[in-house]
Every structure is written in structure tokens, then in C-alpha cells.
Design a protein around this nucleic acid. Structure first.
Lengths: 315, 315
DNA sequence: CGCGATCATTCAAAAAGTTTGAATGATGAT
DNA sequence: ATCATCATTCAAACTTTTTGAATGATCGCG
């Protein structure tokens, strides 16, 4: 004898809902084109399997018990989810990925990323439904973007270091450059010194750096001079905030701090050499390419979108 | 002919999961005590109903298609939810409410409320499960607590004004008193004046009041002298913060501001008369009393718990 | 390359589950 | 008190699922 089948089927839930709505077994039977005894039989099967009375039998009309009402409430929600799963399975069968994980370098403009997510979900197919693919957006710092891609935690990486050569099994296309400037608060001692700043003078002041989000590295930073004090923060925004408060000095993406510079809240100081970093987009080439990844790669192929990611200019 | 039944039943999902886990229809059939053709028939029914191929038929072993994998993932989650609903329906049948809405006066100590919620959910029955009742905790100000109860939005009200007589269809039991003190920041002008404070002097300074959360009232406040300027804030914490900053003056619950007074951050000034408010607990007596409401009323029957609610002392 | 074991699928027959229709007792409206 | 409508029970009929046999395909092994 095989395992007993689960009684809480979508049709069982719909039956309870229909009876409750119709007010009686007889009325529900008429609505369903069945005879009342068929409903009586099915409800009894469900009640016996759950070991719970769903309808009050003392009354002639169909009155739900508290448990019956609970089943009605929770069951209605379940039906919606079951329909959603069925719909989603059909969509995946049509070529969409179930989910797409995107690792974005923290230097990428978050507004532009969210604009892209918005545009992705604004798509409508012939059934007027958005793509079924669940986008998982994650933000990484420094080598964390590569890390997420190589480890399989991400399918697409936006803003990987173009000079990094760890690209086995990946496809890469250029994204563009980000120009960095050395910035301090107006009341910071370095703000008053002549340009270009002497490295020895820089070393005497605390740097503000972002902790690398790469999983296996201990918190380590870049662009630090040997022996320099350092304040480590988790995000670029906090780095900017710290430097605005004069808590330290360091390089910041020029586009992101331009408004602060224009308002006199930060001072840009030239250093011995300009600092420009080159970025790229990378994705795993092994797995079959779905429609969601296709769409994102197509968007990222646009110079305008790339510029927006790098500079924070709306596309 | 009646409407076609929904194909995504719990047993259908389990079947797909069993085949995927076993690696072949034949192995799954052996595991289920059935013949392979029964599985072949059921899978085909499901695939035809969804109009989706779930298994790759080119291979002899059972390989899921992307859609099949999606069904497996989402279906596993659905099964857990379906089981949870069945379990919950059984629990409700045993006397627990599906949910219990509690409206607490903002003057009640939030930590004590959360302690009670913790203790409620820490209960375990013979099946080692917590109560199935979902607690909906809401915070109200002034007559909002009564309002929530009378309107049916809440089943239990903690901290209703004992002097309010709108208790038709409700049961009430006393909770206790809250002593209020008139407090200002040390640098506030009223801080330097002799006691008891002259009402004319109080009227010349802005009061800080909390907006009444009662639904149908326009924002109106209590304990204001005619013609007095008033800053209205949404919460007691913000009222305290505003008064700490010297933004205004007014009555505050003595227990809640005692630490600030002890640290010299607020100054208590005597006024023409002491202010003590009496509070009560009320619940709707019409509906049958479930085990969750029973539990809460039992807890609130304790003088120690009441004191904790009023004074912020841990029970 | 040939052979044997195992696989999935098809199909007729059998078994199990659901529905029908008749009968019965109960309830509510008049 | 009477009548219409209700839910339930049960045997018969209908529908769905499972079985067992047959078939063609695939994979591993010698």
C-alpha cells in the first residue's frame, strides 16, 4: 500500500471556498454542476484526513468552524502561490532563468543599477507579465566582484578590475574608466598644503579605506602608503561621509564627490600621479545563456548605460 | 463536465521530487511501491496540464529540464507551506485563535510588551510546537486604544483610560496608575522659575504633544492650556527627545524620564496640581474566548506584570 | 560488435476513487 | 401542521489510476 496522498489539494481548497461562498452544500453543488452528495463525500474525505471538522453540522446552512475559516484564509493564499508557481514554471520553460545573481562593484552608480532593474521588470510579454526571473543584486568591493563570479555566487559581474586576469571560464567585455581624486575636508590639515601633495605628508595623516568584501581575504585595503594609519569602513558612502567629517583622507571617485567639491564640502588635492582605474563586465560562459542574462548584456552593451554606471548620469 | 482540476497537487510535486531524487522512473517506482508506467502516466498528465516538459526524454535516466528544476525548487517550498497550513488548521481546531490583535497604549513599557510576546511564543505543547496564533501588536496614543478595540481592529487593549466609559460589549479590569511630571530641559526658561509654576508662565512656552492615534479625530492633544503654542510629534520617544532638546515643555510619565532627570538632562518642575492617570485593560466579550486571549488575560492579572507595564520594571 | 540488463512508453484489463440517483431524516419558513 | 429544501447514506455507474504484458531503446560489459 503506498503512502496516503496529501489531502490539501488545490481542488479541495477551492471546494471549501465554494461551499462557504454559496452558503450551502446544495447551492455549491449547483454552482459546480455536481450533486450534493459528491460534495458531502469530498468534504468528509478532507475532514477525516486532517482530523478536523471544517463545517458546523448542527446548522442546516454551511457554517465554517474556526478551523474551517482558518483553512479558507490560508488556503486562498496557498492557491495564489500554487498558481504563481505553475505560471513561473511555464515561463522558465520558455527560456527565462529562474534567477539571475548580479554582483556589482560598489563604485557602480546604485541609481543606474536600480534603473536597470526597473527597466528589466517593466518588460511585458504577450501575456502582459513581467519576466519571471528573480534578480539577486549584490554589491561587492574591490576583488569581491570577481570572487562572487568565480565562486558561482553570481552569474554576472559589473565592474570587475580590467587588469585582473582571472578569467578562466568567463567572458569579459570592457565597461570603462573611473577617475579618482584625492579629497579631504576643507578643515583637514592637508587641505592647506601646496600641490602636488608630498607622499611623506600624506603618510602622516589617517587614510579612510573600504574593507574588501572578497570572502577569503582578511580585511585588507588598497592605495595605502606603508606605515599609514587607516580607518576602515564597510561602504563607499561611509568613506565619503568619513572624509567629509575630516576623519581622514584618500582617493574617491571623481563623479561621486563632484557635488561635494562644488559645494566646498570637500577639497580636491593633486597628488604625484593621476589615478584612473579600468573596469569590465564579466559573466560565466559555461551555463546556457537565458533570456534574462541576454537582456542585461544587451543593456550593458550601450555606451550610454556604461557611462551612467561609471559616472552616475541617468541614461 | 466540471472545471478541470488543478494539476499541481502536493502528490504531483512529491512525485517529481521522488523521481529526481531516485534518478529514474523505475527507481522511483520501486521506492513508491508502484509500477513505472503509473509514474509515466502521472508525469505525462502533469506535463500536459501545465503544457511544459518536466523531464528530458532524450536521456534514459531522469534528467529534469530547467522548468522541471524550477518546479522542484518552488514545489518543495509549496509543500512546506501546505504542511504548515494543514498543521495550523489542526491547531486552530484545538481552540487557538488564528490571530490576536492587541492595541497597547504608547505609555506602556514596550520592553515588557515584547517580554510578554516572547513568553507567549515560548510556550510548547505536547507536539513541542509554539501557539499557532499570530499576535498583531499595535501601539496607540490616548483614545486610540479604545478606538482600536471598539472598531474591531483589536481584540485586547492594554492601557485604556479608566475614566472613559465607552465599554458596551467590552470587559474591563484595572491595570494601575501612571504618574506624570512636568519636565523641561535644564536650559529651558521654565527651568529657572520658582515652583509651583504659574499657568500663565507655562502658556507662554511651546508645549510638546503627541498626536492622538484615534482614527476619526483630527490631530488633537490633551493637557494644553488655551492659546498655547504646540509642537505635535507622533511618538512618546520623540516627545521625550524634543523636550530633552528644549524644543518645548509638557507632562511626561515619571518612570520613563527618571533616568534623564537623574542625569540632569531634564528638570522636573511642580505645577499647580499633581497629575496621575488611571489605566485599565479591556477586551471584547462577544466572541468566544480562545486560548491565546486566555493566556494574555492571565498574564495581565499579575500585579508584577502590571507594574512592569506601567513603570518599565522587568517582571 | 554482440549480448544482456535495465530503462520508458504504450495499451488493455483491473482496481480504486468519485459521482450519481434514490431514499431518509432534519430543519426552517409559511 | 405542512411543505420545500437541506445534508447524509448507500448501491450503482462512471472516471481515474494502477497493473502487467509487450515493445523498442539505451548503456555497460566481455
Amino acid at each position: 500500500m503506498t503512502e496516503r496522498e496529501h489531502p490539501l489539494t488545490p481542488d479541495a481548497i477551492r471546494l471549501i471556498a465554494t461551499i462557504a461562498e454559496a452558503g450551502s452544500f446544495a447551492a455549491a453543488a449547483r454552482a459546480l454542476g455536481k450533486v450534493p452528495s459528491a460534495l458531502s463525500y469530498s468534504v468528509r474525505q478532507l475532514e477525516e484526513a486532517l482530523d478536523v471538522l471544517l463545517f458546523d453540522r448542527a446548522s442546516r446552512s454551511a457554517v465554517l468552524t474556526p478551523a474551517g475559516r482558518e483553512l479558507l484564509n490560508e488556503g486562498s493564499r496557498l492557491l495564489l502561490e500554487i498558481d504563481a508557481v505553475a505560471s513561473r514554471v511555464k515561463r522558465v520553460a520558455s527560456g527565462w532563468e529562474g534567477q539571475l545573481a548580479i554582483a556589482a562593484n560598489a563604485l557602480m552608480c546604485p541609481h543606474t543599477l536600480l534603473d536597470l532593474v526597473d527597466a528589466f521588470y517593466a518588460q511585458r510579454d504577450t501575456a502582459r507579465l513581467p519576466p519571471p526571473t528573480r534578480i539577486r543584486l549584490r554589491q561587492e568591493v574591490l576583488s569581491g566582484t570577481w570572487e562572487a563570479l568565480l565562486s558561482g555566487a553570481a552569474d554576472l559581474a559589473i565592474g570587475v578590475d580590467a587588469d585582473d586576469t582571472r578569467n578562466t571560464g568567463l567572458q569579459v567585455m570592457p565597461l570603462g574608466d573611473i577617475r579618482f581624486v584625492f579629497a579631504v575636508a576643507p578643515h583637514h590639515p592637508l587641505a592647506r598644503l601646496p600641490e602636488p601633495l608630498d607622499p611623506a605628508m600624506i603618510r602622516m595623516h589617517r587614510a579612510v579605506a573600504i574593507a574588501d568584501s572578497a570572502l577569503r581575504l582578511s580585511p585588507v585595503t588598497r592605495n595605502l602608503l606603508p606605515g599609514q594609519d587607516v580607518l576602515t569602513v564597510p561602504t563607499l558612502d561611509m568613506k565619503i561621509a568619513a572624509q567629509l567629517r575630516g576623519l581622514g583622507c584618500g582617493f574617491l571617485p571623481e563623479a561621486r564627490v563632484r557635488p561635494h567639491v562644488e559645494r566646498g564640502e570637500l577639497v580636491v588635492k593633486r597628488t604625484a600621479e593621476d589615478k584612473v582605474a579600468q573596469f569590465a563586465i564579466a559573466w560565466r560562459s559555461g551555463a546556457q545563456r537565458g533570456r534574462a542574462l541576454d537582456w542585461w548584456l544587451q543593456q550593458l552593451d550601450s555606451p550610454r548605460t556604461r557611462a551612467a554606471l561609471l559616472e552616475g548620469v541617468a541614461p
